[in-house]
Design a protein around this nucleic acid. Structure first.
Length: 660
RNA sequence: GGGCCCAUAGCUCAAUUGGUUAGAGCCCCCGGCUCAUAACCGGGUUGUUCCUGGUUCGAGUCCAGGUGGGCCUACCA
């Protein structure tokens, strides 16, 4: 009995339009679900949208729309993108749906009933422009909001907190008991070491905006977006619910064999730490695996708003077709590693693997040999009379199918395709060595039939093995073989294992080549249409590496000038409470007002040794909070094995004098 | 500062977990074939497995140290 399988993508924030980063996650999840479905497992594939939060509320206002109207509008391109990419989700959750909102509240109540939620004050930097809190790290120098370039304020807000600190131990125990919980393994190490440091309670509500799920019993607050967002995986199935109340939840959450969340590496922490803790608190079963995949760069460059190279999938689908793009995503980079989306590499793989490899194999047999010599029909053969060469190919097919299956199960898509191409390549070799065109000339009908059948049946196997990645093309391939489209059925394992599924007498169909080769001028026009410069990525990468190295060796004079070094006089100095190394210094840097600088030198200097001394500081370093105190610059000191020596000047120059 | 991961052919990656002469694909060169989409097949070139030591009958693999890169984290010289 094949047990249910549940796979999810992250829910995408509707503030963005869909780009290939979204597409990559979604295609991966679709491939997983299609594979599992082929194996006969009841499978549920969920994707969706994260539609709450301050940014949305603000954007809607800008566009003079009600938030709901705004998200409705933004949701459409996502639905369209998944349709274009053949991503056949079973569920499409939107966090603004009534069901989701109710279920988030239900989860809240469960966590509250456990005693894990309390009300307290929350204090942090706040940007009025954004109407949101900023962490220290997000801020630009001078405590400016990274979005608005305006100063942030220190603000206190009442907020509900989740007792995440209570879950440090339970999480570590859980990780111990589930060594495959996070993939790839290196990421799991990161998660573990983060948790080992100890977890702090988490603020899980906001009062600064309205566009969210109201906290039960206290509608002044809305539920923290991450709690809201993570909950989608359960709420989409109708949970949390008692047995019998929500059939999808019973099947795909409670009694699922696998619950796999595919996520980008940037949101791993939320999924591998917060989400399991929330679920533990609510007494709900945990997912079986969190799969953190890598990031795609675009032609060697990071995708970013400022570079303007966000790549929407639409034009790519139009140029290459959904299946080709899916193939490229899955083939080019190891899942879990960072990779590069390169138009050049896509074209190379298309021509080299899809056109020359698979497409040509299909064409030479079906559209040529079988058509010309066997009236386009699948021939009858005596399987007991097959030759060694035939058996060897059949063996290869078995090995490839088993290997590919193993790799699909491990979400190692590139390897699954690698194994599959071993078979494509073996089949091409087989055709070459058996020389069916000669058999036709010699009128050796029996042998010709055997050879053709062997290749046709191999193609039938391939039409299944590649189905998760290229569903449409595989059905086209099957149509050419005279086979019906593949129809996955629960509890029926369709993965190829038995030789001879192709019925003799079946009429094959000749159509256009599956993957027509692009010649150079076609390649050029495609790239031109997509607005892409055809730079060989290898060369580019090498060039980038070179610049990077030379930059490592030297900095430009201008770079040096950016550092504002100044002489300052130490006015006051005291130890920072509870700190091993920090001294708090108040210095005069000739600015008319004092500056506070924290320096990690208290193991080497007593506060009184420093007062009155002239020191050298970096005056334009981004301010930073240390031990709750702001440091507005950096004190220069030299260090060696024996200790540390603060830099000074040997004449009493004016405070504020530049040190250049 | 602490931690984790990585380094193999020009490029992308393998190497059955310590076992013969380190392999594929792409690229390049030569040849073959002529069913096929200028495709396909065969052959060839390319290696200090980052460095230095160690353990072992045997190390790409294990250990120590170093170099370089990536990531996570932190109380800044």
């Amino acid at each position: 009995m094949a047990r249910p399988y549940y796979v999810t993508t992250p829910i995408y924030y509707v503030n963005d339009r869909p780009h290939i980063g979204h597409a990559y996650s979604t295609v991966a999840a679709d491939v997983v679900s299609r594979y599992e479905r082929l194996r006969g497992k009841p499978t549920y594939f969920l994707t969706g949208l994260d539609e709450h939060g301050l940014k949305i509320e603000r954007r809607a206002k800008e566009e003079e729309l009600a938030p709901q109207d705004f998200v409705d509008r933004m949701a459409a391109p996502f639905r369209l993108a998944w349709e274009e990419l053949e991503c056949a989700h079973d569920g499409f959750i939107r966090t603004t749906s009534a069901q989701h909102r109710e279920n988030v509240q239900a989860l809240w109540k469960l966590m509250d009933a456990r005693g894990d939620i309390y009300l307290d004050d929350y204090e942090d930097w706040y940007c009025v422009g954004c109407e949101s809190f900023k962490t220290e790290k997000e801020l630009l120098e001078g405590n400016l909001c990274p979005i608005h370039q305006k100063p942030v304020e220190r603000i206190k807000e009442r907020s509900y907190f989740f007792r995440l600190s209570n879950y440090t131990k339970p999480l570590l125990d859980f990780y111990e008991a589930h060594p495959d919980f996070v993939q790839p393994e290196a990421r799991f190490n990161e998660v573990r070491s983060f948790v080992k440091e100890g977890l702090r309670d988490l603020s899980i509500s906001r009062t600064s905006f309205r566009w969210g799920v109201p906290v039960p019993e206290d509608p002044e607050h809305v539920v923290y977006v991450w709690l809201d967002a993570l909950m989608n995986y359960v709420s989409a199935l109708g949970g949390p619910a008692e047995e019998g109340e929500a059939p999808l939840y019973d099947e795909f959450w409670q009694s699922s064999e696998a619950i796999k969340h595919i996520v980008g590496k940037d949101i791993l922490r939320f999924h591998a730490i917060y989400w399991p803790a929330f679920l533990m608190s609510a007494g709900i079963r945990l997912p079986t695996q969190i799969w953190a995949h890598g990031w795609l760069t675009v032609n060697g460059e990071k995708m970013s708003k400022s570079l303007g190279n966000f790549l929407p999938p639409g034009p790519l689908v139009e140029a290459f077709g959904a299946d080709v793009l899916r193939y490229y995503f899955m083939r080019e980079v190891g899942f879990g590693q960072d990779g590069d989306f390169s138009h050049r590499n896509l074209l190379n793989r298309y021509n080299g693997e899809l056109a020359n490899g698979l497409g040509n194999l299909m064409n030479r047999i079906v559209a040529s040999i079988v058509k010309k010599n066997l009236e386009g029909r699948v021939p009858e053969v005596d399987f007991d009379a097959l030759s060694d060469a035939d058996r060897q190919l059949i063996d290869k097919a078995n090995v490839a199918a088993q290997e590919a299956a193993k790799h699909f199960e491990a979400l190692a898509f590139h390897r699954a395709l690698d194994s599959t191409w071993e078979l494509v390549s073996a089949a091409n070799k087989y055709v070459d060595s058996t020389e069916p065109w000669k058999l036709a000339k010699q009128d050796d009908k029996t042998r010709l039939a055997e050879v053709c059948y062997t290749v046709l049946e191999t193609l039938r196997w391939l039409s299944i093995m590649l189905f998760p990645v290229m569903p449409k093309k595989c059905n086209e391939l099957r149509a050419q073989l005279g086979m019906p489209p593949l129809l996955p059925t629960e509890q029926v394992d369709l993965w190829p294992s038995a030789w001879g599924g192709l019925r003799p007498g079946t009429q094959t169909q000749t159509a256009t080549p599956l993957f027509p080769r692009f010649d150079e001028s076609q390649e050029r026009s495609i790239l031109e249409r997509l607005g892409v410069e055809d730079t060989p990525t290898q060369k580019k990468a090498a060039a980038m590496k070179e610049t990077k190295q030379s930059e490592n060796d030297f900095i430009e004079f201008d770079d040096f000038l950016k550092v504002d070094l100044r002489v300052a006089v130490v006015k006051e100095a005291e130890r920072v409470e509870k700190s091993k190394k920090l001294l708090k210094l108040i210095v005069d840097a000739g600015e008319g007002r004092p500056r506070q600088i924290l320096a990690g030198i208290s193991e080497h200097y007593a506060p009184e040794d420093l007062v009155g001394r002239r020191v050298v500081i970096v005056a334009n370093l981004k301010p930073r909070k240390l031990m709750g105190l702001e440091s507005q610059g950096m004190l220069l000191a030299a260090s060696d094995d024996t200790g540390l020596s603060v830099l000074g000047v040997d004449k009493d120059v004016e405070p504020g004098s530049p040190a250049k």
